[in-house]
């Protein structure tokens, strides 16, 4: 079959999305985007007492690139510590997908933002100030 605009990895994650669904007892949930822009991405996190991401699921309304970005993001997240989750950039998601068309890069950015929102929600549920996520994120960016 002639190759379409997406890499084989993107097509694989589109056809067989990993970790699709919801976590009923999630302790961090983040939703970004809106249908008017064509994408909504929702991420459910289960972070254990050692601050390790034990489980993650997603639900996405969006194009092939949005679905594949969410799916790939969840694969990169499982087993990672909170700081590692925050260090996960959209570029890492794009690279893991063997690239996205330039006009679809924003889908990977949404995935990064969804993780951020879910972690804010996680800290909030622990009674901590969600702003800690922005601080940690800024620190990581500075170090890189």
């Amino acid at each position: 079959m002639a190759k379409g605009p997406y890499s084989d990895k993107v097509m694989d994650h589109f056809m067989n999305p990993r970790n699709m669904g919801e976590i009923s007892d999630a302790n961090g949930v983040g939703e970004v985007g809106n249908p008017a822009c064509g994408d909504v991405m929702k991420i459910f996190l289960k972070i254990n007492d050692d601050q390790v991401c034990e489980d993650v699921k997603f639900k996405t309304f969006g194009c092939g690139a949005a679905i594949a970005s969410s799916s790939m993001a969840t694969e990169l997240m499982i087993g990672k510590k909170v700081e590692e989750l925050l260090a996960l950039t959209n570029q890492a998601i794009v690279d893991a997908l063997d690239g996205l068309p330039p006009a679809k890069i924003h889908c990977s950015v949404m995935a990064e933002e969804a993780i951020e929102e879910a972690l804010k929600n996680y800290f909030k549920s622990k009674g901590q100030d969600p702003a800690i996520v922005d601080e940690m994120k800024a620190k990581i960016k500075k170090e890189n």
Binding site: G4, P5, F14, M15, C37, G38, D39, F61, G62, C63, G64, A65, A66, I67, P101, P102, A103, K104
Partner: peptide, 30 residues
């Protein structure tokens, strides 16, 4: 979303058109 439906139908062997926000110009640089 329109494009994901279009893609699934394509995988199942149907060529349709999308008036989708997302796939109208997928080769666009921006």
């Amino acid at each position: 979303e329109g494009e994901s439906l279009l893609m699934w139908l394509s995988l199942k062997g149907f060529a349709c058109a999308s008036g989708s926000a997302c796939s109208s110009n997928i080769l666009a640089e921006d």
